[in-house]
Design a protein around this nucleic acid. Structure first.
Length: 734
DNA sequence: TCTATCACCATTTTT
DNA sequence: TGGTGATAGA
């Protein structure tokens, strides 16, 4: 068979990686160097040139999106869909193993997945029932502790404890949490990986089966693997299988979540027969952008070393804008976006990136004001939304009455007269009898432990669920979902809430029915899994836990992309804005006082810069309103770390308050009338005190346009800074 | 039991 | 500033 098309489009380094005969391979792939491309072509090469069976290939990614993309690109390249190959996320693949070998993994057949929200609620309940002071030991922190331990492969019993209060308390909660999960047949995200690892260690015959099967293991974003994930890979690879890992130490930005950048260094030690290939040619950005990124990241210590280059053009300089405040910054960004769009570009090719989600509000406001469509990533994903989780909890109960997490969630949603007192009683009974909440409900009613009103309410709840199950039997998945949403009263519950938010919630519930209608169990295509009709709902629920469902959002409209720097990893845009480049915000104050934290922040900045293909803006504000009050800011050190010859400062708008600042060198754009300058054809001058009918008194800071079209920015004493159209605002000069 | 009000608190988040 | 969680009154 002619396999030349698999190698033809690649450069030398890429080709070496794709056709490598090495027993193990580490590919250090810089940003934009064709990392995914190499993985995809490598798999095609194995299948077509080396006649490897698809059954012998396992490819791991971190996100479902990446897994889907990889699979579809493989299919595209080889011209057909390959069954038998395992392509998925660490969690997805580990979960699959646990479903197939639930007995050997020590799980009940109907075990279910606890997402982080469920996990937090459970820990809160445990802290309360253990009578631990939740002010001193917040559930959040405890959840963090447990997850961190699991990421390291440690169970409560394995952890050494000294006599310090912290470890003792954490371990007490961790142990109770383990017991509770065990009792309820629940596993959290960390547990999925931990169990899958233990499954292999404890069952050599199962391990041998998979080792013999998966002779080729490929890993994407290797710099993000944590201890347990790497351990899992090592066990699977054994001594005979080929392991190819692709990653970039400079793009490791999840250290705070347990990712171990050291795994990259460790790889060469653990697999002494491995080759290292560097992909350093960048196909994404202009050389200006690339040089800026290279210079910035060179401030980090202990890198593996890698220098990205491009044979593309220099491109435009990086523009830096010093804004007066966060509103001015947002306005600047939006102005540039409007220019960009009116020059015939797509809005979707532009992205605004920021360090923390809170920064999006100001930007959204500014976009909204000019009516520019935008799409914001992050926040709650589809399956994490409150209304969706409630609906899913009802569905969970149809499968398993003893799902306490689900009962806790919806026993009184919508309100049906089961209050805190009643639930407390039920919980206590459950603890005494060591049974599920559902059983405890039954006991409470049977033994008349409750007031008759409460007992009736409980009874109604039990009956509601039983009836639902009865009515749902035999229905298609989407009909089940529809039935449950209708009969649970969730729609009415949200209608009563009223407002824009409530409407969105109802829409989401309807969207859930649609999602169920188009649900196609990925496991169905696999040879090993026999999915019966009754577990189809279970498969849907699993998918809902493991895939947050970010594909649900409307992607048809041409819209500007807003997201955190973290969620921008792996993406690219023609035009990129890095906003909020200020000390304390980026690098964030929580991470800037230790070297590890600071270097991770710098890598994050590196990721941000390298998202840009053609043009990059960086902006910062001199003052910024944060959680209510105004703070003065200094420009981020990362700006200084970009060489001056790659940068130009933008001064399109007048900024009054800098009359005292030294004049900046280099070319300036536009005008800079300074303090006291008059807005053309008006009675208003900058720095002047004015009064407004509604907002009170303030100082004129800035203006744009002239005559009837002139807008002025006034910093009001009472309500802060606002932009007003002069001809409407009726400002009185004071 | 429900709901309105008031402290409290706030990185990043693939699964 | 805004979203959350505890608490007091209806």
């Amino acid at each position: 068979m002619d396999v030349s098309h698999i190698l033809d489009s690649l450069n030398d380094q890429q080709r070496n990686a794709v056709a490598s005969p090495a027993p193990n391979l580490l590919v250090l792939a810089g940003a934009g160097s064709g990392k995914t491309r190499v993985l995809v072509h490598r798999i095609a090469w194995l299948l077509r040139a080396e006649n490897v069976s698809p059954f012998a290939i396992l490819a791991v990614t971190f996100t479902n999106k990446a897994a889907r993309e990889m699979r579809s690109r493989i299919d595209e390249l080889i011209g057909q869909s390959m069954g038998g190959m395992w392509v998925g996320t660490f969690h997805g693949l580990a979960h699959r193993l646990l479903r197939m070998h639930w007995q050997e993994a020590g799980l009940p057949e109907d075990f279910h997945i606890l997402d982080s929200d469920d996990q937090l609620r459970l820990i809160k309940r445990l802290i309360r029932s253990l009578k631990i002071d939740d002010d001193r030991w917040p559930a959040k922190q405890c959840q963090w502790y447990i997850n961190a331990q699991k990421d390291e492969g440690l169970r409560a019993g394995n952890i050494e404890h000294f006599d310090d209060d912290y470890t003792k308390t954490m371990l007490e909660i961790y142990a109770a949490y383990e017991t509770e999960c065990e009792r309820g047949g629940m596993i959290d995200f960390g547990e999925i990986l931990l169990r899958a690892h233990e499954l292999w260690l404890k069952n050599p015959q199962i391990l041998r089966h998979y080792q013999q099967r998966f002779q080729y293991v490929l890993v994407d974003e290797f710099q993000d693997t944590n201890t347990i994930q790497y351990a899992w890979l090592r066990v699977l690879a054994g001594t005979n299988n080929q392991l190819m890992v692709v990653g970039d130490d400079d793009q490791s930005i999840y250290g705070w979540r347990g990712a171990r950048i050291e795994n990259i260094q460790q790889f060469s030690n653990d697999f002494s027969d491995s080759d290292i290939i560097r992909l350093e040619q960048n196909y994404r950005s202009t050389s200006t952008i690339l040089n800026a990124a290279n210079k910035l990241i060179s401030h980090n210590q202990g890198r593996l070393g890698k220098n990205l280059w491009t044979d593309g053009a220099d491109g435009e300089p990086i523009s830096i804008y010093e804004a007066f405040n966060e509103q001015d910054e947002a306005r600047f960004v939006v102005d540039r976006l409007q220019d960009w769009f009116t020059s015939g570009n797509r809005r979707a090719d532009a992205a605004i990136l920021y360090r923390s989600n809170a920064q999006s509000r100001e930007l959204e406001d500014a976009l909204l004001r000019v009516g520019m469509p935008y799409r914001i990533y992050g926040g709650h994903r589809f399956y994490e939304r409150l209304e969706i989780k409630n609906a899913l909890s009802y569905l969970r109960l149809l499968i398993n009455r003893h799902d306490d997490t689900a009962v806790e969630r919806i026993i009184n949603v919508p309100t049906r007269g089961i209050g805190g007192r009643t639930i407390d009683t039920v919980r206590q009974v459950a603890r005494e009898y060591n049974c599920s909440l559902w059983q405890a409900c039954v006991e409470c009613v049977n033994q008349t432990l409750l007031s008759s009103r409460a007992a009736n309410a409980i009874l109604a709840f039990l009956k509601l669920i039983d009836d639902m199950q009865q009515d749902c039997s035999g229905l298609e998945l989407h009909q089940k979902v529809e039935h449950v949403i209708e009969h649970s009263g969730l729609i009415g519950h949200h209608e009563k809430e009223g407002g824009e938010k409530a409407r969105a919630r109802i829409e989401n519930l309807e969207e859930l029915i649609t999602a169920a209608g188009s649900f196609d169990d990925p496991g169905m295509q696999e040879e090993e899994i026999d999915v019966t009709a009754s577990s189809f709902l279970a498969a849907f629920l699993d998918q809902a836990s493991l895939d947050a469902g970010d594909t649900q959002a409307d992607e048809t409209e041409d819209a500007v992309q807003l997201m955190t720097l973290h969620s921008a990893k792996g993406l690219e845009f023609q035009l990129v804005f890095l906003s909020g480049m200020e000390e304390g915000l980026f690098p964030h104050k929580m991470s800037m006082d230790n070297l590890t934290g600071l270097e991770e922040e710098r890598r994050l900045c590196y990721v941000g810069i390298t998202r840009a293909k053609a043009k990059l803006y960086m902006s910062y504000a001199e003052s910024r309103r944060m959680h209510g009050d105004v703070t003065l800011c200094r420009p981020s050190r990362f700006i200084r770390e970009v060489p001056g010859d790659l940068v130009e400062e933008v001064r399109l708008k007048t900024t009054v308050n800098r009359a005292h600042a030294p004049a900046r060198g280099g070319a300036t754009f536009g005008r800079d009338p300074g303090l006291g300058a008059e807005v053309p054809q008006t009675q208003i001058s900058l720095g002047q005190r004015v009064a407004h009918g509604k907002f009170g008194e303030g100082v004129v800071l800035n203006y744009e346009g002239q005559g009837n079209n002139a807008r002025v920015q006034v910093n009001f004493d009472a309500v802060g800074s606002k932009w007003l159209v002069l001809s409407y605002a009726k400002l009185e000069a004071l």
